[in-house]
Design a protein around this nucleic acid. Structure first.
Lengths: 346, 346
DNA sequence: ATGAAAGCGCTAACAC
DNA sequence: GTGTTAGCGCTTTCAT
């Protein structure tokens, strides 16, 4: 590999001091037109590139933003990662993904000081941690929470509109004529504000508002929300002989499994059973039938997250200032898996 | 935020020198049982965590492995990223993903010295670059190539078995009775060894071996291999009125679009048309019908890549030594989208 | 407009 | 077994 060229080398080559090279390279003021040209020429000739590790070391920063997500399997976090990384790069940072495995231990481990220390800031999507487990001050770096779990210690928090979105989805099924709507991944309300509980709340609100009773046997919990889980939950529900004419699935990934299960059972969608997902994954548009879903507006979410975080990071203001809480607005994307007029121009 | 604790702080607290702290913290030999205990106690008390930025700076490394991929949209690169990152972490490195946008400019830009410099090593999956564009020496850091494009300058290279896998897929369709097999994403052989060309070669080999002629109108090129592309290519093919009774789609993602298109056209799979994909994405098992596909054995691929790369990185031997070339072995996963006996126990 | 000095936190090399 | 010295490449501060 080529020899490593440092600022000193450039300085010697250009016949100036390291400081002048530094100023020119960083576009700072205070260098005559002529000196600047000489330095730039030397940089070119020697092929000098700043050593970002040294720069970060000197600055007491790492330039790294940690993104703590349960996993990267589905398209959801993969897209989020790509979006956040693009935004971070435009500000001179980069994103490093840490997978927590969606377990309490995994999440706690990811927040250990030695794991967190290398990051200038954190975007954390907790799925198991309880408020008592951690405080903003305890984490040690500016952190923006993503998702529904509220943690202790005044974290900044960006949330999707789980309740509103779920209500939208359920109301849409009811409008389409469904009266016995299964909730795949539904969770009994124990006062914990996790994604499943919130969406279940929206499901109930829609029923209440429409004056439709909820058969509790239709609210079926799931450990996680993979395609496999969706498939298995629906099969179990069918096995129990509980009738249903609509399904609200908590994620698009799981909805894919539900559609597959309905196909295996010979039940037509949407004629016999209507199905709605949640997330607006790209894949939904190509499923058979095309999946009606809820779009949580993740693009704006990513923008808000990164803005909030980098402001904290750069103002060293992680401790001070009010904790901000932002809720995005969800939108229904009607397609073929539900009975309705034509799909609106998405 | 808490005050930052350094080694000097710990040294003072424990009444020893920085060096001793360093030795203890890094588990190096040369510290009496008693001293060790005293240092560890001080570390505990002060909540000291090593500054990895400083450590890397000192070592002249960044600890970062750059992964240059076209995009993160599909499950393919997302999975690969997760796998590589797990392997890297177990060796004290971490993976940073750079998206090239699948364009020549994007790939060239990602290889610019100032972009590459921060990495200790690179895993690069080129989709556009030509051999003349770059040499191993020119890149400046140890690099392992992933995929089919052979570049100049003796890069280490790990490849999936594109030709063999495609031959497997095509032969399977022929065995199932197909005689007019469309190749969605197929490429005319211009001597460029890209993924599409190689898989097309396998498609032709299978035909030749079975004594079946290829109708060139069935070989339809595609710009990329998204679900949308699959959908559109199949629709175009249908529009042209070329008959076919089998489809080999170059990726599972695109195969999803093909299945959707066939559903829209009212053609039954596998009764009227058999379909095979390539990649063995998890989703394939839940499509309607379940997708027969080729498993390129990406898990072993990731292991080989990381081993090769870190060996180069740690031996500083990127320049010296023979360039290694590894080809994985592909395997057919038979499911419902093709006519055959039962699926083997996957 | 330019330069000299100092030091960020860590560890290799060499004392003792 | 433990301490001292020196320096990685950069930028802040203060001179000039």
């Amino acid at each position: 590999m080529g020899v490593v060229v440092t600022m000193s080398d450039v300085a010697r080559e250009a016949g100036v001091s390291k400081m002048t090279v530094s100023n020119v390279v960083n576009g700072r003021a205070g260098a005559s037109r002529e000196t600047r040209a000489r330095v730039l020429a030397a940089v070119q000739r020697l092929g000098y590139v700043v050593n970002t590790t040294a720069r970060h070391f000197r600055a007491g920063r790492s330039g790294a933003i940690g993104l703590l997500v349960p996993h990267l399997d589905g398209p959801y976090y993969a897209h989020l990662t790509a979006r956040l990384d693009t935004l971070a790069r435009s500000r001179g940072y980069h994103v490093i993904v840490e997978r927590t495995g969606a377990s309490r231990e995994g999440e706690l481990a990811a927040l250990e000081p030695e794991r967190v220390r290398p990051y200038d800031g954190l975007v954390f999507s907790p799925v198991q941690l309880e408020p008592a487990d951690v405080t903003a001050a305890g984490v040690g770096v500016p952190t923006v929470l993503l998702g529904e779990r509220r943690l202790a210690g005044a974290f900044d928090h960006v949330m999707m509109d789980n309740i509103g979105g779920a209500e939208l989805a359920t109301a849409h099924l009811i409008e389409g004529g469904a009266r016995r709507i299964a909730l795949v991944g539904g969770r009994q309300d124990r006062g914990v504000d996790d994604m499943a509980t919130l969406r279940t709340r929206g499901y109930r609100q829609a029923h209440a508002r429409a004056g439709v009773a909820v058969d509790e046997r239709l609210v079926v919990d799931a450990d996680s929300f993979t395609t496999r889980d969706g498939y298995e939950v629906l099969m179990r529900l069918h096995g129990q002989g509980v009738p249903f004419d609509g399904v609200f699935v908590l994620t698009d990934a799981a909805a894919m499994g539900v559609l597959r299960a309905l196909a295996d059972l010979g039940r037509r969608v949407p004629e016999d059973v209507q199905v709605v997902g949640f997330d607006n994954d790209l894949e939904g548009e190509y499923l058979v039938p095309r999946l009606t879903t809820i779009d949580p507006d993740n693009d704006s979410m990513a923008v808000h997250i990164m803005e909030l975080l980098l402001e904290r990071v750069e103002k060293q203001a992680s401790g001070r200032g009010e904790a901000v809480e932002l809720v995005m607005t969800a939108r229904l994307v009607a397609r073929e898996s539900t009975r309705s007029p034509a799909a609106p121009p998405s």
